[in-house]
Design a protein around this nucleic acid. Structure first.
Lengths: 210, 210
DNA sequence: GACAAAATCACATAAAGATGTTAAAATTAT
DNA sequence: ATAATTTTAACATCTTTATGTGATTTTGTC
C-alpha cells in the first residue's frame, strides 16, 4: 500500500486527487492539506511514502514546504504539481530534493503510475519538464580540467595556496622547509604560466584544478 | 511507426533488441551497427526517430557517437544503454544531449515503453539513474552572491586583483596613486574578512562576487 | 548647507612573496 | 642499473604586499 499525503489549496482538485488515489488499489491518501504551514509536523505524524505538493499555494507555498520537509525527512518521495512548467521553479524544486515534477493536466492513470514510479526510486516528470531538465544539463559548462601535469606534491601546495596559506604556514603544514615551499611554488608558476600567488589561485578556480 | 537505429557491439544483444523491436506493433528497426565509426552518415541516411546507443563499444564509443550525432542532428532521440550506472558517464551523456539513460537489464516491455516515452519528449531513465540525476542537482550550489557591500571602485579593484594585477598595475590602469590602491584594498580586506590578495581572489570566486 | 560615505593620496615599516642559482636525496620509470 | 623526475633544501636579493596613521577632496543625500 502506497501511503500518500496531498498538499493542494484548490478544494475541487484536492478532493479529486483524494478520490482518485483512494479509489485505486494499492494507494491510500492519509491526509490532505490546503497549505504547508505545518508541513514538518504533518509529515512526521503521517510518515507517508509519497507527498503530492502543489507549488502555488497561499501561505507557505510548495517550494518552501519542500525545504521544510527535507529538513526533517529525506526519505519521503515528493512530487511537485504545477499548472505551468516554469523553468525557475523546476530547477529550484529539484535542487531542494524533489523527486519528480508533474503538470496538473497529467491524466489520472498516468498520475498513479508516476506515484508508483517515485516509490521505486524513479524521477517521474511530465515530458515537457523532462525536456527542460535535460536542457539544464547542457547549459552546465564542461569541467575542462586542463592538465598542467602538476605533481602530487605540487597539487597539495596549490591547494594550500588556494586556502589562503602563507609560505610559512605551508611549510609547517607539510613539515618541510620554507625554501622547499618556494621551490614547489616556483615550479607551479612555471607549469601554470603565472607569476603570482593570486594568479595561481585564480587559475585553480577557473580551470577547476582542485 | 517509431523508427529505431541500434548501436551495440554485442551481437546477441543487438539481435535481441532488433527482434524485440521489430516484433512489436508500431516499432521498427531501420538498421543496427556494432560501433559508431560512421554514425554521422548513418544517422543522416536513416533519419530515425530514436537511437539506442550502447556506451561501451570498441572503436568509437557511445559517448563519442552521441557527440557526433548532435553535430548533425539535434532532433533524433538518443537513449543511452549501459550495464553499469556510472555516474560520470551519465552526467557526460546528458550534458551532450542524450534523451534518456537505461540499464541493459531493463525488461523488454519497459524498454518499448521508454522508447515511446522518448519520442513524446520524455526523459526515460532507469530509476537508479534517475536518482543519480536528482542528486546531481542537489550538488549544484545555489548562487549565493553574498553581499559584502563593496563600493563600485572597490569592486573594480577586486576585479583587477582577480585578473592578477599588481598594485602598481592597478594604479596605472585606474590612473590613481599606488597608495590609493592600498587604501581600497585595505577596505576590501576588511569587508571580505581576509588579509591577503590570494584569499580575496579565492573569496571572489567562491562567493561569485564578480 | 551639513553630513556621511567614498575616493583620493602620503609616509613609514615589517612581513611575505618572487626569482635565480645550485644541488643532494628519494622516488619512479625504462 | 641507469636515467629521469620529484622532492627536498640553502642562500641571496629584490619586489610586492600588508598594515597603521592621518589627511584632503568628491560625491551623494537629507
Amino acid at each position: 500500500m502506497i501511503r500518500v499525503v496531498v498538499y493542494e489549496d484548490n478544494p475541487q482538485f484536492r478532493e479529486g486527487l483524494t478520490m482518485l488515489i483512494n479509489g485505486s488499489d494499492g494507494f491510500s491518501v492519509l491526509a490532505s492539506y490546503k497549505n504547508c504551514n505545518n508541513v514538518a509536523e504533518e509529515v512526521e505524524k503521517w510518515l507517508p511514502d509519497v507527498i503530492l505538493m502543489d507549488i502555488n499555494m497561499p501561505g507557505t507555498d510548495g517550494l518552501e514546504g519542500l525545504k521544510r520537509i527535507r529538513e526533517v525527512n529525506t526519505e519521503v518521495k515528493v512530487l511537485m504539481l504545477t499548472v505551468f512548467d516554469d523553468n525557475k521553479n523546476v530547477f529550484e524544486a529539484l535542487r531542494n530534493g524533489a523527486n519528480g515534477y508533474l503538470l496538473k493536466k497529467t491524466p489520472p492513470a498516468k498520475l498513479l503510475e508516476y506515484i508508483q514510479d517515485a516509490t521505486l526510486g524513479g524521477a517521474p516528470m511530465t515530458s515537457s519538464i523532462a525536456t527542460q531538465v535535460l536542457k539544464m544539463f547542457q547549459i552546465i559548462p564542461q569541467t575542462k580540467n586542463k592538465d598542467y601535469a602538476l605533481s602530487e606534491r605540487e597539487t597539495e601546495v596549490l591547494q594550500l595556496l588556494v586556502d589562503g596559506y602563507s609560505y610559512k604556514m605551508i611549510a609547517s603544514e607539510l613539515f618541510i622547509a620554507i625554501d622547499t615551499v618556494r621551490s614547489h611554488i616556483k615550479k607551479i608558476y612555471e607549469k601554470l604560466h603565472v607569476n603570482s600567488k593570486s594568479e595561481a589561485v585564480a587559475k585553480a578556480f577557473k580551470d577547476k584544478l582542485l
